[in-house]
Amino acid sequence: MPDIPKFSDLPLNKGDPRWSAWGLYGKDDQLGTLNRLTDDVVKAASSEIRTGTRISLNWPLDAQKDIPFFNRQAFHKNVFQKLPRIVNDDEWSFNTQSSSQWDGLRHFGYQKEEKFYNGVTLDDIHGENKTNVNGIGAWSEKGIVGRGVLLDFHGWREAKGLPYDAFESGSISLEQLKEVAKSQDVELRFGDILIIRSGYMVAYGKLPREEIKSLMAVQPHHFSGVEQSEKMLEWIWNNFSAVAGDQPSFECWPTQKNFALHEILLAGWGCPIGELFDLEALSEHCKKVNRYTFFVTSEVCNVPGGVASPPNILAIF
């Protein structure tokens, strides 16, 4: 077992929000569970590179066109010539969470306590004396680099003929994820980067525009994802440095409990949450070579005080 507190010992400090680990890496820490990606952990993960095959997990920035979920700004691109020369420049404008993304530590706080990771407040972010604290730019120095693990829930579910609706508030249980790992012969290592293929991208790709617009009109949106439970939290706490999936919310949405995983992962532990990762080419290759672990390199944008970032992520085999 790694040298971290037991899940049952959380929160670490009296009066802190439930299951929080504030202060574990110091009161001014902004890396959270990325501290688990030590040089030794990354060096060990490099053994996953055997063939040099590289696969992008980045959905196109304009993949949702002009109708992203959660009422987010669509991607806009302006390409212009710099007359009189034969030269082009371009300008992009987009919400950092309208396509593949890492949620940063400013994104989702404890709702009742109104606090972000390590006790950061809204006033720290928006107030008169605001700073860049918990900005996603803090992750850019070393990136999110380590051993990735794909749990192909969608492939496993299809093989078993189990029903699934990406646009209903269904939960992927811990027991199911453990069954997927067993079927893939995957053994977890502390510090792994967990990536779950739920099947959202497959379902989204089959929808006509009008049906997407109808789903967007339903408030709150409904998505299937990882279940909200103490045992799921304990499993994540004991194993991973970051978690990600192909769906818009990672977890079942809206939450089925009186808490959201986003609260605990982001605000409690400083654990990055990846969403809308394009896992189709990755899952095909994993199935082809019968290997579901790989080296991951992800470099977030160096934006001081940023909330989220495109992942700029590759899986390397």
Rank of each mutant, 00 (worst) to 15 (best):
S56G: 01
R72M: 06
Q101M: 15
G26S: 08
D39I: 01
L61Q: 00
A74D: 04
H76A: 09
D89E: 11
N88R: 09
V79G: 03
F80K: 09
P84N: 11
P68R: 04
R18M: 01
Q101R: 14
A21F: 00
Y25N: 13
D66M: 10
F75V: 09
K77C: 11
Q30Y: 13
W92A: 11
G32K: 15
D39A: 10
D66E: 13
P17M: 11
N71C: 02
R50C: 02
D90K: 13
D39T: 07
V41L: 13
D66Y: 07
A45W: 00
A21S: 07
Q81V: 14
S93A: 12
S20R: 07
S100P: 05
L24G: 04
I55P: 00
S99D: 05
A63D: 08
I49Q: 05
L31V: 14
D28T: 13
L105K: 00
T96I: 12
S93N: 13
K43P: 02
Q97I: 13
D28N: 14
N88H: 12
L57T: 08
S20L: 12
L37F: 08
L83G: 09
N78F: 13
A44D: 15
S56C: 03
K82R: 14
L83I: 12
Q30V: 14
S46P: 00
I49M: 02
S100W: 02
D40F: 07
A21V: 06
R106M: 00
P84S: 10
K65G: 12
D90W: 13
S47K: 05
T53P: 03
L61I: 04
I86T: 09
S98M: 03
Q73R: 05
H76Y: 09
W59P: 00
S99M: 01
N58I: 02
D16Y: 06
P60N: 11
I67W: 04
V79W: 04
N35M: 08
W102I: 06
K43D: 08
E48R: 10
N58R: 02
D62T: 01
S100Q: 08
N78V: 11
S46N: 09
S99F: 02
V79P: 03
V41S: 10
D28R: 14
K82M: 14
D39G: 04
K65F: 12
